[in-house]
Design a protein around this nucleic acid. Sequence first.
DNA 1: AAAAAAC
Length: 515
Amino acid sequence: MQAETTVEAPEVTFADLGLSQKVLSAVHDAGYVNPTPIQAGAIPHALQGKDVLGIAQTGTGKTAAFVLPMITRLEKGRARARMPRTLILEPTRELAAQVEENFVKYGKNHRLNIALLIGGVSFDEQEKKLERGADVLIATPGRLLDHFERGKLLLTGVDILVIDEADRMLDMGFIPDIERIAKLIPFTRQTLFFSATMPPEITKLTEQFLQAPVRIEVSKAASTGVNIVQRLVKSKSKGWDKRETLRKLIRAEEDELKNAIIFCNRKVDVSELFRSLVKHDFDAGALHGDMDQRARMAMLAAFREGKLKLLVASDVAARGLDIPDVSHVFNFDVPIHAEDYVHRIGRTGRAGRSGKSFTIVTRSDGKYLDAIEKLIGKEIEWMDGDLSTVAQDDAEEEAPRRGRGKGRERGRASSGERKPRGEKRARRDEAEEAVAEPIQVAEEAPAEDKQARREAIKADNAERKAKPEQPRQREDDNRRDRGGRNNNWRREDDEPSPIGFGDDMPAFMKIPARV
DNA sequence: AAAAAAC
């Protein structure tokens, strides 16, 4: 009896949460009425000034859960020069920019000074904004500390600190930076802390940073959405074979494919695949962390606006980026970490829509695939049979590598079937795709649509120019890289550095002797 | 077998 009266529990609206009228009006204009669970849970507490520990994935409305109460709370008071009132830390530049967009959208009835401090762009404008006094400071850790060390910034006036995507910060080695930054902010601040998962290191961090936090956990979609069709596609392991497999796949999906993200594990492969796709007349763009920041932004914008159909990306795009309505996700490589699979395919099938994901699998991907299936708790269906048929061919192709001798490097073997495998990639690859050559952008390409793509190609070419045939990273590099961020030690490879002088080599000795 | 983040 009693239950019947509460079956239709009244739905919570934004108006019930205690947000200010100005904020509510902006939310209304954006077309939202009902908050998501994380919003409904976090906003009232955040408005009361309590610390919040939000455990939520991206796509749960987490950003608005801190942006809306922050704007409301910022209505009282004013910013002073170089003393931002709030600070939001984000792991990647794109995420930081996205949070800024949220402040612009929901703060349209306020006069907020927003400063975005991210790397890859000039200091000047950022400094000006700091100088003017920022209500909201959104930053990636490196650039923030850089400004701080230059004395452009005081964190003693920060009332609200937001740490977003904490587990990802951990993965990226940012925790020491985060600790350092947090120590610069008064103890009396309010802290809003968000993480998708809670590994022990993160729990420790919350104990350190948060005071009597309200904990809000929303159902972690550790399993993959039911509205995403997932398929595995076998392929031989050569780059060329995988690219052909992908092209066939894209063409086969043509009717349903509205737009797609194609994930590669490595930046070089993003670059190479992007060039190959453009070469094959696909409407593709690229996104990875070594690209020029302007090109990154332009790419993302073009993709969001539907001016680009395919976005080839590294895992920089796997999490958090708000790209609504992607119809397909292709994994050109099986992700090495199983969680990345979940994040990647989570780019499609959002907000109840349906989506499709295809993962190209080669015979060496077995253990990663196992880990993925274990994580999501089910087996993924193969599209055209599993790897059993591919395995044989691939094994044969790799066989000559073992018997490689000097004399057999050149020319095709008379039997014609097998190419000797040199240091570089197969010759057939380069001949057919010419991926190693900088691409000339056709003059007649419609300017507006192709702008972003052109920028990326330019950036990509510039990148090649800047480090010509850079030798493969030394093992040494990798070892040091793993520890975290400081890669400062990396010296310019072309700088001659004679034995005996080290860095103190007299200047005149650096001048090459004329013969 | 990786990616990301400061000059």
